[in-house]
Design a binder for these strands. Structure first.
Length: 337
DNA sequence: AAGAGGTCCAACCGCTCCGCA
DNA sequence: TTGCGGAGCGGTTGGACCTCT
């Protein structure tokens, strides 16, 4: 297919538009409409290619363009739509009146993408990043050094250093783990890595922080079936010093409904200390795939350990819809979801 | 105060889609 | 059915602006 030559033509101006050029373009379009973009520059007495004119008009001069910061509603809309349709900026723009695809794209690249990465989500899939699971076996092995060391005498200093290294490694792992504990992709179980609940639990229990406050005893384990790790993680999450690493005031809490969805709930949300006896079902470990589309934040979905009352979505009190109401009625949502 | 590094965003580039002959 | 050309889209760039040291 032949390449459009319009921008390659010699003598046509490129670069930033001057106010005079803007005025010519606006005047012409207001009088005649844009018609054929290719013909427009000559008719409007502009030394630009039609493509440049179209871009200038649609991204900047159009009278209905909304300027200024994106609202939280708009941000949520973009996140939601992007999780479903990906980088279809023009489609996303049709759901944000006054915003251009270019503006949304820029906002995504400069803000939202980074936010998701900071939260531990893959910005393309909107799923928790699982790359650290790849190194889990090594971390477990590292944790097992503790046992090895018991059989191999080291001088006291070396022993202490090694012990600290092990604890640090484990804490680092746990930090990653907690950031992703919200969900584990249905296709990516621990079993895949050959790691048992018990091994993970041993890791948790071997850390002083856990030993001091959160250790589970064997009878608890027996009583709680196969969800040892879920419970251990849950308890750890409610330890103030740990939770503080998880919550990020910069991140709208309401994106975390990935944690609590119609199709499954993350373990730590289902095993609140106040919900004794709540034994999470197996589906607790399963997140909808590829992404929760209709998530609801409830008063009880997230508890802050430092706060006796529950944390509610910052976008409304009580049980609130996470997504703007109109999305449930929007034909495109039915179409694409 | 100045320079380095980071951030933001308007604009460009090149590709695909789609209508038409 | 095929090829052409215009329109639109998404990725990328470059420069202005901001922040930090």
């Amino acid at each position: 297919m032949g390449r459009s030559p319009c921008c390659d033509e010699n003598g046509l101006k490129k670069g930033p538009w001057t106010p005079e050029e803007d005025q010519k373009l606006v005047d012409y379009i207001q009088k005649h409409g844009h018609g054929s973009w290719r013909a427009l520059p000559k008719l409007a007495d502009l030394n630009r290619c039609g493509k440049s004119c179209r871009l200038r008009w649609t991204n900047y001069l159009r009278p209905d363009i909304k300027r200024g910061k994106f609202s939280q509603d708009e941000e949520q809309t973009i996140l939601h739509l992007h999780s479903i349709i990906g980088n279809k900026w023009s489609t996303i723009a049709t759901h944000l009146p006054g915003r251009t695809d270019n503006e949304i794209k820029n906002f995504w690249n400069t803000h939202l993408k980074k936010k998701l990465i900071q939260m531990g989500f893959d910005p393309m899939t909107h799923q928790p990043r699982t790359d650290f699971f790849d190194s889990l076996p090594q971390l477990i092995a590292l944790a097992n050094l503790r046992n090895l060391m018991e059989h191999r005498p080291l001088d006291e200093h070396a022993m202490r250093l090694q012990e600290e290294a092990v604890q640090l490694a484990k804490l680092q792992y746990l930090q990653n783990l907690l950031q992703s504990a919200a969900s584990i992709p249905s296709t990516n179980s621990y079993g895949q890595n050959g790691i048992t609940d018990m091994e993970v639990l041993n890791l948790l229990n071997s850390i002083p922080l856990v030993e001091e406050n959160l250790v589970l005893n064997s009878s608890e384990l027996e009583n709680q079936g196969s969800n040892h790790f879920a419970n251990a993680t849950s308890q750890l999450l409610h330890h103030p010093s740990v939770f503080s690493q998880l919550s990020d005031p910069q991140v709208p809490f309401s994106y975390q409904p990935s944690l609590n969805t119609e199709m499954g709930q993350a373990p730590f949300l289902t095993t609140m200390p106040s919900q004794e006896g709540n034994n999470p079902s197996d589906s607790s470990w399963v997140l909808p795939s590829p992404t929760p589309v209709l998530a609801t934040v409830t008063d009880t979905s997230i508890s802050n350990p430092g706060d006796a009352s529950s944390t509610t979505s910052s976008y409304g009190g009580g049980t609130s819809s996470y997504w703007p109401e109109h999305f449930f009625e929007d034909p495109i949502m039915h179409e694409i979801s």
